[in-house]
Simulated scan of single mutants.
Amino acid sequence: MTDNGEPMTDPKKDTDRAARIAALRPAYQADLAAGPDRFLGPRRTTCPWCSSARLTTRLRTTDLLQHKPGRFTLDRCTDCGHTFQNPQLTTEGLEFYYRDFYDGLGEQRMSGTFGGRAAMYVGRAQAMLPHDPVPKKWLDVGTGHGHFCEAARTVLPGTAFDGLDFTEGVDLAAREGRVEQAYRGAFPDLAPDLTAHYDVVSMFHYLEHSTDPDRELRAAREVVRPGGHLLIEVPDPESRYARLLGRWWLPWLQPQHLHFMPVANLRRRLTDLGFTVVAEQHAEPHDPVDLLAAVWLALDNTAPREDVPWLPEPPGRLRRALRTALLLGGVPALALATLLDRLAVRPLSHRLGLANAYRLIARRM
């Protein structure tokens, strides 16, 4: 398998991909000519959540998925527990590190990854049934390619699902009929035109990507009608896996994930904004991939790099062969990690404090 989840036996696809990479290489090399530090803003001395100056370094790492150059630091506030990227990527940096991840070179891989998770999306939609079994209009913020909306329609066939994202994936979602209305842009900028328009607004693994989570939550309050619901799912920085696996814990996802909010912090902020939290879940949103992802990230980081446009030149035949050999040798470890994730850890994830995400459902008063 390639890093894109595709068989390595399709010469035409390999040739087409190599040509695309060669065409993109000059632009990437120009972007990197001054070094990757230019993509980082000034370092904060206070917590962006509570303004405390009591900060400590929690993690230092690199881009373990795309392997784009750069080093990143996550700091933790010792007063409120908020963890955040510090220094944070600038707007130019976000564009650079998102480029070819969800779209472009990465579109086929991410579409396949998200498209194969229908059971998870159905579970997310079912979480709303005890609180509003017949919502008329639902906005999925950070919808990506719209696969959640497509699956959720099987649970709520009478609901109109719209999607919002800042990538071109939302346009693809509209073309494929996964969302009825596509909004492309920043949620806080679009919110004034959608005031009190939706019965449900969902943010599945979206807030951690935002540069200002509080601004996103205020936008959600504006868009959710009185009596409507906000459904949020984010990585849990208090998961024991976050400490046990260190930089190999997939939800850190540097440099894309900018903020990690302990559940108590988010509950208090929602209450301050006029919401009432009606459900808190940990076991249900847990995604049983932590050990598998950690093994894969370690293998991928050890192996020679594949051909990508942010490398000065494509790897030679020997380096490609070494990469293939190492990844094939790691298959037993990957298989064992998968079994442990799904059979041993998943049933006990919340009880053992290993759940990697939490979900809140809040009603706007």
Results as ranks from 00 to 15, higher is better:
K12A: 15
K12F: 09
R20P: 00
Y28M: 10
F39A: 03
G41H: 12
C47I: 13
R58T: 05
L59Y: 08
L64R: 15
T78H: 13
Q85F: 00
T90D: 04
G93H: 01
Y98N: 09
R99F: 02
D100F: 04
Y102F: 14
M110F: 09
A118S: 14
V122F: 07
A127M: 13
W138E: 04
G142S: 04
G142N: 05
L156N: 04
L164S: 07
V179N: 06
A182R: 00
Y183R: 09
D212H: 12
R215N: 07
E216P: 08
L217A: 03
V223Q: 05
V224T: 08
L231D: 05
E233Q: 12
P237Q: 04
A242C: 10
W249T: 07
L250N: 07
P262Q: 06
R268I: 00
L273H: 02
A283R: 11
D287I: 11
P288Y: 11
L292E: 11
N301W: 15
A303I: 07
R305D: 14
V308Q: 12
P314L: 03
P314V: 01
L322H: 03
P332D: 11
T338R: 15
L339Q: 10
R342K: 15
H350I: 00
R351N: 05
L352A: 15
L352S: 04
N356I: 11
A362C: 08
